[in-house]
Design a protein around this nucleic acid. Sequence first.
DNA 1: ATAAATTAGTTGTAAGAACAACGGTTGCCA
DNA 2: TGGCAACCGTTGTTCTTACAACTAATTTAT
Lengths: 150, 150
Amino acid sequence: MLHSDLSIIARGSETFMSRCLGDFGITAAEVILLIYLYGHDNSRQEDLAEYFMLDKGTIAKTLQKLEKKEIIERIVNKEDQREKVSCLTDKGYALQDVCTDLVRLWHETMFQGITAEEGKIFERTVHKIAANVTENLEKWEHVYGRANAS
Amino acid sequence: MLHSDLSIIARGSETFMSRCLGDFGITAAEVILLIYLYGHDNSRQEDLAEYFMLDKGTIAKTLQKLEKKEIIERIVNKEDQREKVSCLTDKGYALQDVCTDLVRLWHETMFQGITAEEGKIFERTVHKIAANVTENLEKWEHVYGRANAS
DNA sequence: ATAAATTAGTTGTAAGAACAACGGTTGCCA
DNA sequence: TGGCAACCGTTGTTCTTACAACTAATTTAT
């Protein structure tokens, strides 16, 4: 069944990260943001939330944990004091090799016995579907709002 | 990025179900088990856990909630008193049309602008990847066990 | 220029899930 | 037959997340 397969893959990724990271003092949710920051240092929380389609509260809490562990710093933007940007510390950069290695290992795990061609098509389709889901999220919000108003 | 796309789809499905089901008194996690039971009434909890690759404790708690709502009954197997099978009640069957409709709607949402051919290939690849993940879960457990033992 | 609306981030609450320790059954086997 | 291992389900804890209500800062409109 499609739903359970997708769910198994998504949860499997979390379990994989969680088990492999046990010794490094960071969790699965944290490492996902961390890896993004390696390519997009100084991101705003709102932008992180939009990229991952995660609730902004969820982003806030995960970044707080990374800050407490001194893996990132969060700095208020002087030009717009509503904003905070997250910056990697030396301790954060020290984890980069471990994190990218884990991502590589996870991809190898997923794509065992799958041709490069098949993988390419898969990634493209996944991206299209994620876009469909993202667009429609707003429609469900409207449904939800109406149900609440009545 | 592949990881975030898969995560967006999986979480999107949960959000979709949750928002649409608000009025029916059942939650996203519950409806997934419910739909499976329509095709596999009288399932053992262990079998549900294996099918969905969910922790048996998670299955136990979700079934308890469905039982409390009188959507299923859980009956101890007289031949093996360790086992409980979950059976749909009339109230459970009354929700079948709503549930299957929601699944259809979700599939339509995901596959907008995606050809039948592309969808078939996608589902096949997702299934292969889920199988890869499932197989490798055991390996990570061993890694985990060794790390703990040392 | 001030009031209203929008935007960014925070926090409390609740659902979903993994993990680990536990208790009762059953099966095995010595 | 008696003990031990394997199996099935339960429960407490923790992590991840969505949602909603909130504060503070900025922008827009009158």
